[in-house]
Amino acid sequence: AVSDRLIGRKGVVMEAISPQNSALVKVDGETWRATSGTVLDVGEEVSVKAIEGVKLVVEKLE
């Protein structure tokens, strides 16, 4: 799938994300809905860990 190429890519949080709420991230110039197990604020850099349906699963870039 096209989205599989995004695993391992870096992105930027466009809307705050919490474990209860998905929000938008920008990866390679494209906007995607994403979820995370932690709270992520706007502007934080993230890494794509997986794809669940049409959502990216991201975590904060260390």
Rank of each mutant, 00 (worst) to 15 (best):
S36T: 05
S47K: 13
E59H: 06
A23S: 07
V54P: 09
M14E: 05
S47H: 12
E45T: 11
D41E: 14
R9A: 10
Q20S: 12
R33Y: 15
G37I: 13
S22P: 09
I7T: 04
I7G: 02
A50N: 06
D41H: 15
I17C: 15
T35P: 01
L6D: 04
R9T: 07
L24T: 07
G43M: 03
E59A: 08
V27M: 03
M14W: 06
I51Q: 04
E62S: 12
S47C: 15
G53S: 03
R33C: 15
K49H: 06
V2A: 11
N21K: 12
V57S: 03
A23Q: 06
A34P: 02
A23Y: 15
S36R: 00
D28P: 00
K60A: 07
D41S: 14
G11T: 01
S22R: 03
R5V: 07
G11P: 06
L56R: 00
K26Y: 13
M14P: 01
G43D: 04
V13F: 00
S18M: 08
I7M: 05
E45Q: 10
A1H: 12
D4F: 07
K10Y: 11
N21V: 09
V13M: 09
S47P: 01
M14N: 02
A34S: 04
G8W: 00
I17K: 14
V46S: 02
V57F: 08
E30C: 13
K26D: 07
E45D: 06
S47D: 05
L6A: 01
I7K: 04
D41N: 14
V58E: 01
K26I: 12
I51M: 06
V13A: 04
A1S: 11
V2Q: 10
E44P: 01
T38D: 14
V13G: 01
A16I: 15
G43P: 01
V39N: 12
V27D: 01
I7R: 01
S18N: 10
E59I: 09
V2R: 08
Q20L: 10
T35G: 04
E62A: 12
V27T: 01
S3Y: 12
G43K: 02
V13S: 01
E52A: 09
R9C: 13
L61E: 06
K10I: 13
S36W: 04
L6T: 04
K55Q: 14
L24W: 13
R5W: 10
G8I: 02
R5P: 06
L61S: 08
A23I: 15
L24Y: 09
A16M: 13
S47W: 15
S36E: 04
K49F: 07
R9F: 08
G29T: 04
R33P: 15
A23K: 02
Q20M: 11
T31H: 07
K26Q: 10
N21E: 09
V25T: 01
A1E: 11
D4S: 10
R5M: 07
S18G: 13
E62V: 12
L6P: 02
E15L: 10
V2F: 11
V42W: 04
V13K: 00
L6I: 07
A50W: 07
V48T: 02
V57G: 00
D28Q: 05
P19E: 13
S18E: 07
G11W: 00
I17H: 13
A34F: 06
N21G: 14
A23L: 15
